[in-house]
């Protein structure tokens, strides 16, 4: 090859490089419409239960260009419905699942077989599947402990306590119970009510009638609302302690029915769950455990500037 040819080839190579760079950059800088499809499966009998969490999920979904399909399954319908929904979502090509489910051996086994290529993020409560996942939740044990500490602070001597745990297959409930018991001790507790699924209002009312107590503690939003529904007209001012942040629960804090409320920041939990899913879908699949904060609220501090921002959702 002559020197002249070499020179011409060098120039052409340079131009080709520039052309390739320009083409590649131009094509790759075009708007990418890579949308992830994520399914959220939440367990609850109460349709309002997850409203704040959903706001957080939707806010993050918009930011991370993710399409979200939220499914709520009733604890009453059991594992079958839950598995059917998961199968349907997988069949529809979901990229990841955000789950809050009860620990059921059948469910866990089925999930181990089904979720081979699907990214998992668990929120609030976790189940022991063999596949790696991220976990976003408040420190449930500490929540229970702080609730217990506030109860002890206000409790008069000799008064009895009844604890409504709810679904004992949700480890969040059990962790909160352990934290609560660690704070108040076994001796003050008259009874602990728990079951394999969410407790109904009738079961709780029956227990309260059967064995009346001075203080009632609910360890999740559903049972706290049920306790409030049962006891709101019984003059139980400051005698209920609970967990949750629905408008109803906050109303009763404002009314003084709830002596103390522990409210997890569900907005952030929802937001972080999508954020974590986005990271996992982008191949950062390490098993993260993220703790979200919670507030300890009572009638006195409910309208504090910082607390009201988190406790009262803006009207959409």
């Amino acid at each position: 090859m002559t020197n002249k040819m070499k020179y011409i080839l060098s120039i052409l190579l340079l131009i080709l490089l520039l052309f390739s760079l320009g083409t590649y950059g131009y094509m790759s800088s075009e708007d990418k419409n890579d949308t992830y499809h994520v399914s959220v499966i939440l367990e609850s009998n109460n349709s309002e239960r997850w409203s704040i969490l959903k706001q957080g999920i939707e806010s993050a979904a918009k930011e991370y260009n993710t399409e979200i399909n939220i499914n709520t399954v009733s604890t009453k319908t059991g594992v079958t419905e839950c598995l059917d929904i998961i199968r349907r979502e997988l069949k529809n090509g979901t990229d990841g699942l955000i789950l809050d489910l009860s620990n059921n051996s059948k469910l866990v086994k089925e999930l181990d077989d089904m979720l081979l290529d699907t990214q998992i993020v668990m929120i609030e409560s976790e189940i022991p599947i063999s596949k790696g996942y991220s976990y976003i939740a408040p420190d449930n044990y500490k929540m229970g402990y702080d609730l217990g500490s506030n109860l002890l602070k206000n409790k008069k001597k000799g008064k009895t306590i009844g604890i409504v745990v709810g679904n004992k297959k949700k480890n969040s409930n059990m962790e909160r119970k352990n934290g609560l018991i660690a704070a108040i001790g076994d001796r003050n507790v008259s009874w602990i009510l728990e079951d394999d699924s969410e407790l109904t209002e009738e079961v709780i009312a029956s227990k309260m009638n059967e064995s009346p107590v001075d203080y009632l503690v609910g360890l999740n939003t559903v049972v706290t609302e049920e306790i409030l529904d049962i006891s709101k007209d019984n003059g139980t001012q400051g005698m209920v302690y609970g967990v949750g942040n629905t408008e109803k629960i906050v109303y009763y804090v404002d009314q003084g029915v709830l002596g103390c409320l522990v409210a997890p920041n569900e907005y952030i939990m929802g937001y972080m769950s999508v954020n974590s899913m986005f990271n996992r879908l982008n191949y950062d699949t390490k098993e993260e455990r993220t703790l979200v904060d919670y507030l300890v609220i009572n009638k006195e501090n409910l309208y504090d500037v910082e607390n009201q921002k988190l406790m009262f959702p803006m009207v959409e």
Binding site: L18, F19, G25, S29
Partner: peptide, 23 residues
């Protein structure tokens, strides 16, 4: 940067084509 990225690469593309034609 995001809005100019495409323009930047388009300019490079255009210049390289012009260069090729000129050569």
């Amino acid at each position: 940067n995001m809005s100019l990225n495409q323009t930047r690469y388009f300019v490079i593309l255009l210049i390289s084509i012009m260069m090729l034609i000129m050569v």
